[in-house]
Design a binder for these strands. Structure first.
Lengths: 214, 214
DNA sequence: GAAAAAAATTGAACGAATTCATTTTTTAAG
DNA sequence: CTTAAAAAATGAATTCGTTCAATTTTTTTC
């Protein structure tokens, strides 16, 4: 049987995360006060620190849940991608992007990315970095799958191309969250402009080489 | 004639920047205390804030000087690149990387990148972002130059490929500074692994297509 | 079920960046 | 050269995240 202590603990951890996430969304990560989070979660400020290392850690817990969802959603596409390289890459990329602002604001993403860079050795930052690596691996697998289906030239290094594409979409996402007014549609359009030419470079089609389009 | 006031001001700004940079290098950005910087620069703490918006702003001033140097150094390579795509890309990338740790520690880079993401609208963060865009444009120009010399397929979009390569090297640099023990040589080797295949994809040579090597 | 041990909670105290009312210095006006 | 206005400098007060000694709650032991 789960002890009273264990139950209380799980309950409090959930309450803290919910309270914090609510405030982060409503007021932004920076404006949210630890005191206020504690109040909402019905614990003392000191208790917050028994559950999370610091304020950023609470944010990272939320962000990691979000990224995990994105990863799962991506799996569906990799399992059965469209029969066209450019189309397949766009589908995966757009799904990442569409998911990204569902739970988290740009300001929350900015804070999370800053934390993952500045404090890379905390457990939840490491978890975040690992999730990123799994997203990258997912893109690599997409290219591999397309290659197995003879849509991508066999001579291409799926690993290199997949990782480069991922790093590119990731960097573009950073620019996107830095630019508060930039709409999602603009991000997608810009990403498409860059991934399109790469996709056509690696595509294996009769028309591929003659239409290595600009 | 420059007024007494203007001279004093310029002198103080320089003193503050030097003091701060020294402490950031010696003790790390995080451990350096504003009080200590003020003391070294021979001004009061309050005065620091008449010259820079906040602690991060002082760091960004140093970092921007560094990036400006990298940009200038890169110009030399773009003006007269090696007659081989892969070689040319590696030269530029390696020069970026070699320069990066000359004045700034990994810890300083981490802080600077975190700041540029989290506070993207301060003047010096915007300047940093603009410098980054100019580095990206430099890579695009390298590809264009190679294309003009018939080393890169004319059908390739220099813009797309250049930007993708830059975003990739930038993202790899972020991973590098996050990973304190990773040596520069490993960063370069990993970057080469990814840029090599891309370079060979866009290279225009008799042997190009048959050696689209993995 | 009482006592001891372990775990969890608490909030006041601390540390460090930042702010701001006051004072000092420099420039401009007469 | 005085004096008023403007600019710059100052450091004490404020803010907010984080720490930690003391207290309370839960579990274990006998």
């Amino acid at each position: 049987m789960t002890s009273l202590r264990a139950r209380k603990k799980a309950d409090k951890e959930r309450r803290i995360l919910e309270a914090a996430t609510q405030l982060f969304r409503e007021q932004g990560y920076d404006h949210a006060r630890m005191e206020h989070i504690a109040e909402l979660a019905d614990v003392s400020v000191g208790t917050l620190y028994n559950y999370y290392e610091n304020k950023g850690d609470i944010l990272m817990a939320t962000v990691n849940m979000e990224v995990t969802e994105v990863l799962d959603a991506g799996e569906t596409i990799v399992a059965d991608p469209p029969f066209d390289v450019e189309e397949a890459v766009h589908r995966l990329v757009d799904q990442y992007y569409d998911h990204s602002l569902y739970y988290l604001s740009k300001e929350m993403w900015r804070a999370a990315m800053a934390i993952s860079i500045q404090q890379p050795d905390t457990p939840l930052s490491k978890a975040y970095t690992e999730l990123d690596q799994r997203l990258s691996a997912q893109m690599v697998r997409l290219i591999e799958t397309l290659q197995a289906r003879r849509l991508v030239r066999p001579s291409v290094s799926a690993r290199a191309v997949g990782e480069v594409l991922f790093n590119n979409l990731n960097m573009m996402f950073i620019e996107f969250v830095k630019d508060e007014p930039q709409p999602l549609a603009v991000l997608k359009a810009r990403a498409a402009e860059q991934h399109g030419p790469i996709a056509r470079l690696i595509a294996l089609e009769k028309t591929a080489i003659s239409t290595l389009a600009r």
